[in-house]
Nucleic acid binder design. Structure first.
Lengths: 258, 258
DNA sequence: TGCGATCAATGGTCAAAACATTCGGCCCAC
DNA sequence: GTGGGCCGAATGTTTTGACCATTGATCGCA
């Protein structure tokens, strides 16, 4: 590349005068317009978009391109399609699992180190415990109690995927005690990453999970945040260690078989 | 609906024996297989998927359906398509903006209350400041310093969208001082929501933003986390108040014009 | 009145063709 | 020999048109 070409490239990337030449694909216009309309409040959950054939005409593009836009919007959790004469494309109510999925994907792609996730999880959980110690009602505690009891019962029977999913439920309930949707969502997202790793590396459920949780719950009921945080931190770090070992073992196993 | 029909519906929804009858659309198989392959580590960033025409044959579905799957994967930030003979569909490296976008969408859809976002933001920022006070290097501080200087200069000239985007940069740099990707990502996501609201309700940039930030930076350099947290908390709460008022004014304005 | 058949609107799928982009390689002129 | 233009192959992009499948409303008949 010549020097001037390099210059132009830098300009194209950085300057506001030269914008990068990028062929916008047809469906991107629809995607953007719908997304903006939602952001502006012009489209609200429950609202219906025009029929596919109609949108194709309105935007002046082929129906297939409209459908590609709809698939992108659907993957973003913004719309859903329903069949039949009363069907159509509707704006969805917000779905937090989209965020969990996105974060999990990031982890799958290796963009989030295990260390960062662990650290963030400890910090977030600590905050949540602190808030829960202030705000949680006896009803919140009772939900945690019931969940632990259920975990105890379930640990006696064999279980795979449902089991690890249930294990994550504890953190969801704990976060819910803060009555803050954002914190619940973030907690679920980070839990989800661990959930996936547990299923991959082979779940070796520790038997004393219920015991640890009972101790934490007791600290919570005593409104002793520091002790609860210490307990959960130790637990999370130990879990990470177990996970790393299981993953290492799995890797060796794979290397041996290939 | 008869009683037995209702029973079957409940069973179909809750039981693991009866699974809900749902017509899986063709593209969903591809979407899922690619996503699983990424989660399992069989597909890594840079890897190339078969050509569209080829995938259509492999999976036994029409090419258009393959494309719909690709659009969904693309919206999820997992793949990107490149044109030309050396093009194709490639697994992307993880892109944190997908998460920001998802969280912003949730807010747009009304699934996240402003109060929750504010509270979560204060908590998260406080944690970050605490960590930054422990870990930040002089280089990190210098970056913040430069950013504040830039903000000062920019505040003299008029600016719209770029301006508010630049205002958010401060939090990004601050979070980066923790050297934890997850915290950076979460910070960006919550900032993004406020960024959007600022642009909608009309940015009325307060002139003393730079002053507040200078004070915070001084506290950071003094490794005085508590004072920095107090300062940023006050600022964020004040910003929220201003935002709510601006939104209320905007709403009245709209009501009057219609 | 009830109920089954039919119809219409909608999303889901398929097929075929043409278009646009990119890059490697070939060939020609200098 | 070398530079530059032309061409072709592989790939994603877009269009057109047709048909299928689902769902609810409507009509007609008993």
């Amino acid at each position: 590349m010549t020097e001037s070409a390099a210059l132009f490239q830098r300009q194209a990337e950085n300057s506001s005068i030269f914008t990068k030449v990028q062929t916008r694909r047809g469906f991107e216009y629809i995607y953007e317009q719908v997304r903006n309309a939602v952001a502006e409040g012009q489209l609200k959950p429950g609202d219906r978009l025009p029929a596919e054939r109609e949108m194709a005409q309105i935007f002046g593009i082929a129906r297939q391109s409209v459908r590609e836009a709809l698939r992108a919007l659907e993957a973003s959790g913004l719309v859903e399609s329903r069949l039949g004469v009363t069907g159509g494309v509707f704006i969805r109510t917000g779905d937090p699992t989209v965020v969990s999925r996105a974060i999990t994907d990031l982890a799958s792609l290796g963009a989030l180190s295990h260390a960062s996730v662990l650290e963030a999880r400890i910090i977030l959980t600590s905050d949540i415990i602190r808030m829960a110690c202030e705000r949680a009602t006896e009803e919140d505690f009772q939900k945690l109690d019931d969940d632990i009891t259920f975990t105890e019962q379930q640990s006696k029977t064999e279980a795979g995927l449902e089991r690890t999913a249930q294990i994550m439920e504890f953190y969801h309930i704990l976060a819910s005690a803060t009555h803050n949707e954002v914190l619940v969502m973030l907690t679920d997202s980070l839990s989800q990453i661990v959930h996936l790793r547990l299923n991959r590396a082979g779940p070796k459920p520790s038997k004393d999970i219920a015991k640890v949780r009972r101790r934490i719950l007791n600290h919570l009921r005593a409104r002793d945040a520091d002790k609860a945080i210490a307990e959960i931190t130790r637990h999370l770090k130990r879990l990470e260690k177990v996970l790393v070992e299981a993953e290492k073992a799995k890797e060796l196993e794979l290397a041996a078989s290939s």
